[in-house]
């Protein structure tokens, strides 16, 4: 029958295609981005952040970076709190990506100080020697703002004339760093992991602790503070005369603006105490 009727065949084929389409693609519009899933703290992008986001898209950063943390142990431990639908309601287009040649960036906001990003973007291998991320030093050129207002209007994001005026003199690099620092910070997940500092170091300077601490140090810290703590991107750690809990706080929270990243997300408290014990043991020498 159908073998002889091309028009019937075309119609039936269209119908066959539309069943799954309707159920799995059209119907979910009713539930995704539903009011109930809205998260109050989630804000639209500022003009500068939106321009940064457009540069992210233009450069195809999404070919190497994802922006969604799955509710799986290794993802949450490595990147932070898992992603929620409500966090993406202003993302047009979404930027979840499909390949992690580089790490996930869904929660990159606040992980490093701005200074770190400026250095890293301009020359990634200066911060992370064996990376294969391209260098984006050319982003130091002035930001083109001719479309900024129309972009905000197209997406119905709130803005003021002052916001637009503030773009004056900004570079593309400023924009992309502003964007990166916003990512994942609309929900207060980082605050939840801070605190719990005013403690004693539970680890004594026994050889096992020191050797664990040394291992953590050489993996995480040596690239900036030098293999022997002699200094590098960060200065030597041999002269600091801090109590243990001050070390803990610096390592856990980082030093914003000075370029010391925070390790509260990537190291457990135990690991931070151990590396502290290791630093103290070196100083004693």
């Amino acid at each position: 029958m159908i073998e002889k009727r091309p028009v019937v065949l075309l119609l039936l084929a269209t119908a066959a295609i539309l069943v799954g389409t309707t159920i799995t693609m059209i119907a979910p519009f009713r539930w995704i981005n539903d009011q109930k899933l809205r998260i109050p703290g989630v804000k639209p992008y500022s003009v500068l952040q939106l321009e940064g986001r457009d540069i992210y898209i233009r450069e195809g950063c999404n070919n190497c970076h994802t922006q969604t943390v799955r509710p799986l142990l290794a993802d949450v431990e490595r990147y932070g709190e898992y992603s929620k639908a409500g966090e993406f309601v202003y993302d047009q287009p979404f930027l979840w990506g499909s390949r992690r040649t580089g790490p996930d960036l869904a929660r990159i906001g606040g992980k490093y100080p701005d200074a770190w990003h400026y250095k890293h973007m301009a020359n990634p291998s200066s911060m992370v020697p064996e990376t294969n991320m391209p260098s984006y030093a050319f982003l130091n050129r002035p930001l083109d703002t001719t479309l900024s207002e129309r972009k905000m209007k197209a997406l119905s994001y709130p803005y003021t004339q002052g916001d637009l005026d503030n773009l004056e003199g900004k570079s593309e690099m400023d924009a992309i760093v502003a964007y990166l620092q916003k990512l994942g910070n609309d929900i207060p997940w980082r605050a939840a992991t801070a605190a719990e500092t005013a403690l004693e170091n539970p680890f004594k300077s026994d050889p096992a602790t020191i050797s664990d601490g040394r291992e953590i140090y050489s993996r995480q810290c040596a690239k900036c503070h030098g293999a022997k703590m002699e200094g590098g991107a960060g200065h030597s750690l041999l002269e600091e005369d801090y109590p243990d809990n001050k070390f803990f706080k610096i390592i856990h929270d980082g030093i914003k603006d000075a370029g010391m990243p925070q390790f509260g997300d990537s190291l457990s408290s135990d690991q931070i105490w151990k590396v502290t014990a290791f630093i103290q043991s070196r100083k004693a020498k």
């Binding site: 981005n33 639908a85 993406f88 309601v89 047009q92 287009p93 979404f94 972009k151």
Partner: peptide, 9 residues
């Protein structure tokens, strides 16, 4: 910009 947002997109 995409006509759809976030998880819908």
């Amino acid at each position: 910009y995409s006509a759809y947002a976030g998880a819908n997109d």
